[in-house]
Design a protein around this nucleic acid. Structure first.
Length: 280
DNA sequence: TCCTCCCTGTTC
DNA sequence: GAACAGGGAGGA
């Protein structure tokens, strides 16, 4: 389940494979995997890979239009949702039943490669867009600040309302890139009960929570993300942060801090694990 | 503000 | 063969 650290790892590991490549053609195998606001993937032809990056959980390939005099930068945006994967392989690599689209790319060396977007559960979507067009996307426009670029005041102001603090954390408008894994882990690290109404969080707790989020995301990025079942980076390697989980997927086991049995519950329809002793 | 739906592979 | 995993859209 790619969240921020996994998207970051994919963006980093993908770039060496496709640096300076020119897009030649696209094959879309599942129409619904194309975002409704996307332009036709054929429009990628002739564009050159300028870089790869991440925004929240989104993986982005920046593209330069070499032919256009008005230099209108385009970008290919991947929303990986649960099981999306982006990776490059040599030309002979076959698509599989989970391949949603693939591109043919030309390397500066003249070698031809393929860029795949595979997605088992088919929740993910791909979008070819421009910096201007993407502003029409409500999700993009409302996306909260990056966890490493925000400050306490902004964060505290976003933690508001009577919803459970975990729900607010996972709301991409609050802060970008936090999903179920990192919400549970951050709340445990900060000693905050995930069911607490967001507006009951004190300034001190918000401070602790933001620090925890940043520390956990940083650690996970350094471990190349978490691989629960499906996630692999652009090189096909698994992450290792799952070996550092304190609570996620550990309901019924003992708390690593106090030894109490970790509670498993559902918040907003999402599996949630916490320690009722350590998290108040 | 909460619930359902979209998906498919894995586990019970 | 049902339950479960879950991000985000959309509807109640």
């Amino acid at each position: 389940m790619p969240e921020l650290p996994e998207a970051e790892t994919i963006a980093r590991t993908l770039f060496p494979h496709i640096a300076n490549c020119i897009f030649e053609s696209a094959v879309l195998l599942r129409q619904k995997s194309l975002h409704p606001l996307s332009m036709s993937l054929d429009k990628a032809a002739g564009l050159k890979v300028a870089g790869t990056r991440r925004r929240g959980k989104l993986v982005i390939i920046d593209l330069d239009d070499l032919s256009s005099s008005c230099l209108l930068p385009k970008m290919l945006v991947f929303h990986l949702r649960m099981t999306g994967r982006v990776f490059a392989k040599d030309e002979s690599w076959p698509s599989c039943s989970h391949t949603r689209c693939f591109f043919s790319l030309l390397r500066p060396s003249g070698e031809r490669i393929k860029l795949f977007f595979d997605d088992i559960r088919a929740f993910g979507q791909i979008m070819l867009t421009t910096k201007k067009m993407i502003e029409n996307w409500k999700f993009w426009k409302e996306l909260g600040p990056e966890p490493f670029e925000t400050d306490l005041k902004t964060f505290k102001n976003a933690i508001k309302g009577g919803r459970p603090v975990k729900t607010v954390l996972m709301d991409q408008k609050t802060i970008a890139g936090i999903g179920n894994i990192y919400a549970d882990e951050s709340l445990f690290c900060a000693g905050i009960n995930p069911k607490r109404p967001a507006d009951s969080i004190t300034e001190l707790e918000a401070q602790k929570l933001l620090t925890s989020i940043q520390a956990i995301l940083k650690k996970s990025i350094s471990e190349c993300g978490s691989s629960i079942r499906d996630y692999l980076d652009a090189n096909g390697n698994a992450g290792a942060f799952q070996n550092f989980f304190s609570v996620y997927g550990k309901g019924g086991k003992n708390c690593i801090k106090c030894g109490a049995i970790l509670q498993k519950t559902k918040i907003n329809g999402r599996a949630t694990v916490f320690c009722s002793n350590c998290q108040n």
